[in-house]
Simulated scan of single mutants.
Amino acid sequence: MGNPFDDTEAKFVVLVNDEGQYSMWPTAVDVPAGWTVAHPEDTHQACLDFVEEHWTDMRPRSLARAMGEE
């Protein structure tokens, strides 16, 4: 079995953590603690599109707050 994160034919979800960071996650792998589903099960490309549209500031939320920009 290959790496499920590399299988672009698999189904994915998009996760987000408390810092506002996103991750594409294969549905075959349990969601880790501290992350919540931001976009439901979908194709690899649809999840990638969601991340590109919604994660426009790569800084952790705490850094943006500390800089007074959130």
Rank of each mutant, 00 (worst) to 15 (best):
D57F: 02
S62K: 14
Q45L: 08
S62L: 05
H54T: 14
M67K: 15
V31W: 00
R65D: 05
D30F: 04
D30C: 07
A46F: 01
T56A: 06
D42C: 11
Q21E: 10
A66S: 11
R61D: 04
H54G: 02
K11E: 12
T27E: 05
V51G: 06
R61C: 03
Q21D: 05
L48P: 01
P60R: 12
A46Y: 00
W25F: 01
Q21I: 12
G68W: 00
E70Q: 11
P40I: 05
G20C: 09
E19Y: 02
V14R: 11
E52V: 13
V51L: 08
R59D: 03
L15W: 01
Y22G: 07
M58L: 10
A33L: 05
T27C: 08
E41G: 12
E53L: 09
V13Y: 00
G2C: 03
M24A: 06
N3P: 08
D6M: 06
A33C: 04
E52W: 01
D49Y: 00
A66T: 13
P26N: 11
P26G: 08
V37A: 03
C47Q: 08
A46E: 10
L15A: 06
Q21T: 13
D42Y: 00
D57I: 14
Q45D: 09
G68Y: 02
T43P: 09
F50Q: 09
R61M: 06
W55R: 11
N17H: 04
S62I: 13
H44V: 04
V37S: 06
E53G: 08
A28P: 02
V16Q: 06
V14S: 05
Q21M: 09
R65Y: 01
R59C: 05
E52H: 11
L63S: 10
G68R: 09
D49H: 02
P26I: 08
D7Q: 11
G68F: 00
M67I: 11
C47N: 15
V16D: 01
N3F: 01
A10L: 04
V37M: 03
L48Q: 10
E53K: 15
V16M: 06
M24D: 05
L48I: 11
E9K: 15
H44M: 03
T8P: 04
Q45W: 00
D7W: 00
V14A: 05
T27V: 15
R65S: 10
G68N: 08
N3T: 13
Q21K: 15
F50D: 01
T36K: 15
A46K: 14
T36D: 00
L63Q: 13
D57V: 14
F5P: 10
G20R: 06
V14M: 03
W25E: 03
E52A: 13
Y22V: 10
G34N: 04
T36M: 06
H54D: 01
D49K: 13
W35V: 09
V13S: 03
D7L: 05
E9S: 15
F12G: 09
